[in-house]
Computed example of a mutant assay.
Amino acid sequence: MPGYQAHMLAGAGMAGGIIAGSMYMGWFDAEPIYIAILVTISTLAALFPDCDTESKGQNFFYAIMAVTDITLIIHEHYKWASILGLFAMLPALGKHRGWTHTWWAMLLVPLPIMALPWVFFRTSWEETLPYYAAAVIGYLSHLILDREF
């Protein structure tokens, strides 16, 4: 099975390739910081399915989540901090290669990226679709490397 580095590279590589292709075709245009955010989301999503087992990938994923959560708390974004904390615990609710390694989890786990901004801020789905897509792409890269299809 691929290690966490392979999953990170695959998530970043798939996102980068799709973004580059979309920009080349004229379907997508973005600032470098926005592209970096999308690639980061994809990279983290590529690690998510293995967060249900003790691993370097799990440690890296939760370190990033902890730093993000602390940053949200410092900036008094308590709703977002609590939501992040809740969703970070979800992999512990199953066995390794259980629900986190399914196609439906690939589509459902990132769904709060689109749904929660609408619930709290009435943000349109069009604004959050690229973030959701980046997460799905990263998740998909993990499932492909693990030969789940």
Rank of each mutant, 00 (worst) to 15 (best):
L111Y: 04
A88L: 02
D52I: 14
A92G: 12
E54C: 08
E54M: 11
F120V: 05
G21D: 08
W80H: 13
I137Y: 11
P112W: 01
P112N: 01
L38R: 10
I37N: 04
A92V: 06
A63M: 09
W118I: 06
R122S: 15
I64H: 04
A46M: 00
V39E: 02
Y139Q: 01
Y62N: 12
G21C: 09
D69R: 09
F28Q: 06
P130F: 00
F60S: 08
M114Y: 08
F87G: 06
Y132A: 01
Y131P: 05
E127C: 13
Q5C: 03
V119C: 12
E127A: 15
P2Y: 01
P130A: 02
E76G: 05
S124W: 09
I41M: 15
E126F: 11
A15G: 05
P49T: 03
I70C: 13
A12N: 01
H77Q: 15
P110S: 02
L93N: 05
L129W: 08
M1Q: 10
L47C: 04
L44F: 10
G85M: 10
L86E: 04
A10S: 04
A12Y: 01
Y62D: 10
I137E: 08
L107K: 04
M106C: 07
A105Y: 04
A105E: 08
G13K: 00
H101P: 04
S55D: 13
Y4F: 15
L93R: 05
I41K: 15
P2D: 01
A15H: 07
A15K: 05
L145R: 03
Y131Q: 08
G13R: 00
T123Y: 00
I73H: 03
M1I: 12
K79L: 14
A20H: 11
Y139H: 02
E126I: 12
A66K: 08
F120G: 02
F60H: 13
Q5W: 08
P112E: 00
L116H: 06
A63T: 10
E126H: 12
A6C: 05
Q5N: 05
D52A: 14
G16C: 07
M114P: 12
S82Y: 14
M89S: 14
K79F: 12
I113Y: 09
G138Y: 02
